[in-house]
């Protein structure tokens, strides 16, 4: 009789633990989805900002047509990217192109003095930071989730309900890691 109660008690305890673990996974999954949506919001904000920025600096930067074209092309590619790996790749290229533009603007005192341009530049810098912090927050959550998913005994519950490891937002293009280079010989 006592043995039966012990077995029953153990089953109940395991069930409670299983439910708690399952809920833990669900909470983390929602948080990851939410973080991903946050990245999306920031990326859209960047798409909207770029045309304004390019228009307002175009007049000052006649000799930097190449830098501007790079930005415009990269934006077009990023907007049209369909799959997630493509998207990550295209956004990386866009980030790189924008950093190049930011670095070049530093060399135009007229530009920096213009209130319109400096406001747009601050907005751009802000958007760039928001994207990288959103990505950081997303990756941190993915790490917590994936770690939990791979560690015993939580992984038993994870496998039972077929939770899949989430994908990190890796920095795809190697050049995105590099500091932007500025060619001073042109000036």
């Amino acid at each position: 009789m006592i043995a039966l109660w012990i077995v029953l008690g153990l089953i109940v305890l395991i069930l409670i633990w299983g439910i708690a673990t399952y809920n833990g996974f669900m909470v983390l999954k929602r948080r990851i989805e939410n973080a991903w949506a946050q990245i999306d919001v920031q990326l859209k904000r960047r798409y909207d900002l770029i045309p304004n920025l390019v228009n307002s600096v175009k007049g000052y930067m006649k000799y930097e047509q190449e830098t501007l074209n790079k930005v415009v092309d990269a934006r077009a590619k990023a907007v049209s990217a369909q799959t997630i790996p493509d998207k990550i790749q295209a956004e990386g290229a866009l980030t790189q192109a924008l950093r190049g533009l930011l670095a070049v603007v530093e060399n135009y005192p007229d530009l920096k003095a213009s209130e319109e341009v400096s406001t747009l530049m601050e907005e751009l810098r802000n958007t760039e930071n928001l994207i990288s912090f959103a990505r950081q927050f997303y990756n941190d959550n993915v790490m917590t989730y994936n770690t939990k998913l791979s560690i015993f005994p939580a992984n038993v519950v994870g496998n039972m309900f077929a939770f899949k490891p989430a994908t990190f937002w890796e920095i795809a293009a190697a050049e995105e890691r590099e500091a932007p280079k500025v060619d001073l010989t042109k000036l």
């Binding site: 946050q38 406001t119 601050e122 907005e123 802000n126 930071n129 928001l130 912090f133 959103a134 927050f137």
Partner: peptide, 19 residues
């Protein structure tokens, strides 16, 4: 004020970073 606007932007960034 641009300087204050920048401060507001920075707080928004840190809000995203910390959740």
């Amino acid at each position: 004020d641009p300087e204050h606007k920048q401060l507001e932007n920075i707080i928004n960034e840190m809000g995203i970073a910390s959740g």
